[in-house]
Amino acid sequence: MLEKATLDMIRDIGRDLFLRGLISSHAGNISVRVGQKIHITRRASMLGRLDAADMVELNLNEKDSHILMASSEVVVHSAIYRNTSALSVVHAHPPYATLLSLLEDEIIPVDSEGSYLFKKVPVISVEKTIGSKDAANLVSEALKDYRIVLMRGHGSFARGDMVEEAYMFTSSLEASCFYLHHMKETKEYRRFTEKYKNW
């Protein structure tokens, strides 16, 4: 069982993801790690309207029957927790970020907040973009060294020490991609863009 404070935070962030347009009605998923268990949103749940019944508790290292109800992306979330020190994961479909993931191999924000937070966001490509082992491997590998990663044409996976932090990265990346998209034709102004490629 999740503590009320944790559940409230997941519910509020699910709502914010939806209202901010970072997911469509039944898309996206959120999870937190508590010890050797993860709590992940239910498959086909509406993140904008979560309640306690929408959270599924799973053992990180042994599958059990609760897997029936878990998000389609549970394999990716589990791989992230097994391979990194993440304590929370937010997966969303931020429109501008997803659009740029189709056009770029990496995102280097030019806005202030994005530059401070990310420096660089990798874009990974997989054929089976939803819940595949390839996706799980590539995303968890990238998150060993980055806070957020984009899957080409699909969306973002952010890790955090707490769910609020993973949400912040998701939200900030979308803002960065909004600016990047709209200034494509303008002159670049931020220093060190070349250096950030090596970040």
Partner: peptide, 22 residues
């Protein structure tokens, strides 16, 4: 830092503490 959490909450504190100790 990095985000404010419930200081009287219990769940997840152990994982967070271990992460910061490391």
């Amino acid at each position: 830092v990095p985000k404010l959490i419930d200081r009287h909450g219990l769940q997840g504190k152990a994982s967070l503490l271990a992460l910061y100790q490391n």
